[in-house]
């Protein structure tokens, strides 16, 4: 599957009110091209909800629901079962942010995965609660400045490392887990297509660079996503029933210092902090690729 195989038909319209340079609309628009019209979309509280569904207006051309923050897993379970009962084949698609996945939504998500509901869960990960004004989440990387972990005299950004959510989902041994990046279109589209064709609970985790929250120039969104992959800050792989089946390995690994350059949230980084972040990346790298970086 390649860009040129994508249909022209869009199910996500222009006119939405995302910040200029936001990765999320590009992610959902391209996903929807593959999922198609027989999709029911659910989103909890997140930026996507606000910029694509401001009552009574909607950027979606498919049925769309919104409920509370913590129950994406429960809602898509309900949608999937209701349509199964009616005998109609639809995709129950839940799209939550990192806050709604890592922190607030993990209980309902874990339950739905454990029951192996026939639904697709997408986490678009912009590494903080951007919707409410850049508060740290379980997805915020080490050292990143957010409004609740500012870089000041007492602390220099977030003290803890990013939680490995995709690995938590892999441990559920569900039919399909994949990590994606919009900067790698072929890999991205193949994974979305595979998710569509798989039955049971599917979890897609996409990195979504945020110019406003990460403090970078909006034209650099894709470039930064690409650097995240090349540095190992973001790893691309897929797993079926808990077994890793495909790994994307960057041609040349770049140092993490290269990735954080140009992002305001890392501006205060000291040499020691860069080393600490690099150690984290190297541990992750070794775990995934089974070799020293």
């Amino acid at each position: 599957m390649n860009i040129k195989d994508l249909p022209d038909e869009d199910y996500f319209t222009p006119g939405h009110t995302a910040c200029a340079g936001c990765a999320a609309p590009a992610i959902v628009r391209n996903m929807m091209k593959i999922f198609g019209k027989d999709t029911i979309v659910y989103t909890p509280a997140n930026c996507l909800l606000v910029f694509s569904g401001t009552y009574p207006h909607l950027a979606w051309k498919v049925p769309y629901l919104h409920e509370a923050f913590e129950n994406t897993g429960a809602c898509i379970s309900g949608i999937a079962r209701a349509y199964k009962k009616k005998g109609r084949k639809v995709i129950a698609l839940g799209i939550a942010g990192d806050g709604g996945t890592y922190d607030i939504g993990i209980q309902a998500l874990s339950g739905a995965a454990e029951r192996n509901e026939d639904a697709i869960y997408v986490c678009y990960d912009n590494e903080a609660y951007m919707n409410t004004g850049i508060q740290r989440s379980g997805a915020t990387p080490y050292g990143a400045a957010t409004t609740t972990t500012p870089a000041g005299k007492k602390i220099l950004g977030k003290l803890e490392h990013k939680k490995d959510m995709a690995e938590i989902m892999r441990a559920h041994e569900i039919p399909y887990v994949a990590t994606l990046s919009i900067s790698h279109p072929k890999d991205f589209l193949e994974k979305v297509k595979k998710a569509k064709e798989t039955e049971g609970f599917r979890y897609l985790h996409v990195l979504s660079p945020c110019p406003t929250g990460w403090r970078f120039d909006p034209s650099k969104t894709i470039e930064i996503a690409r650097k995240a992959v090349d540095s190992g800050m973001w790893t691309l792989y897929e797993a079926e029933y808990g077994e890793i089946t495909k790994i994307y390995k960057p041609k040349k690994k770049i140092p993490v210092a290269e990735y954080i350059k140009g992002q305001g949230r890392f501006r205060h980084f000291t040499e020691e902090m860069i080393e600490e972040l690099q150690r984290w990346v190297d541990r992750k790298w070794k775990r995934l690729y089974g070799e020293e970086p």
């Binding site: 319209t13 009110t17 909607l58």
Partner: peptide, 24 residues
Amino acid sequence: IATMQTEAGLVGIGSFIENKTGDW
């Protein structure tokens, strides 16, 4: 909400298309 043309413009599914963001 179903998609419909109202006095306040288009509402419902796909109605964001009427929101021109070019002046940003």
